[in-house]
Amino acid sequence: MDNPLIRVGNLVKNYHRGSEELTVLSGLNFIVEDGEFVALMGPSGSGKTTLLNLIAGIDRPTSGYIFVGTDEISSMTDSQLADWRSRHIGFIFQTYNLIPVLTAFENVELPLLLTPLGRVERRKHVEIALYIVGLSDRMSHYPRQLSGGQEQRVAIARAIVTDPTLLVADEPTGDLDAKSAEEILILLERLNSEFKKTIVIVTHDPRAAARARRIVHLEKGVLKEDIKAEDRGSVRLADSTLAFADVKS
């Protein structure tokens, strides 16, 4: 372990459904190195989205710990977590989740409103983020005027505009056609390789997982398989992922 960014230990997450208690994650241990591109895979109900939410600080574990960098987010208060998310997390959703009444520019600017940056600086940051995702010419467009792929790119610009420590994405290509999905994956890969962003994605899409440098399989709340590109080579990793997907389907 050279430089761990995320350290998860003995992580347990229980949910209550009426009087019934469901264990989604049971004593999970997991580390993500700084600069890694990790794909969390697994069947529905395996706990991958729950793990992602816990790492992103939008949910709280029942027990165990989560460190992101030197911050133990599992012991933070709600307001501390909110502040931490604004500085360290870029979240990409499956359904983009752009605010429909705001333009692409205003959507990307949203996280910057929580920073002390002035109007001119915010503009500069937004322009850069939209340039990176290739939407400099769509700044004043509303989400309804954009295609699905473009909306997701705006969502990615919103996620990277504060230059967060960690990018997390929940099924980022789940709502896209194959061509748009490919473009988004290339963009994520570029953010990882070129901009050195640590990325954790949850996906069912083998093509998406194939872009990752590491694939973590979860099943029934425990880590089942952990495949690294360094171990097997990126091409073989892709093959293994596709094969895994075939088996599951």
């Binding site: 992103a56 939008i58 709600d78 307001s79 909110a82 502040d83 931490w84 998310r85 604004s86 500085r87 997390i89 979240f91 959703f93 989740n97 605010i99 949203l110 996280p111 929580l114 919103r158």
Partner: peptide, 16 residues
């Protein structure tokens, strides 16, 4: 409801 959850994911506190 969903939009508000998104804003909070981005770091908007409950107070905000």
């Amino acid at each position: 409801v969903r939009e508000i959850a998104v804003l909070r994911t981005l770091g908007f506190s409950s107070w905000k």
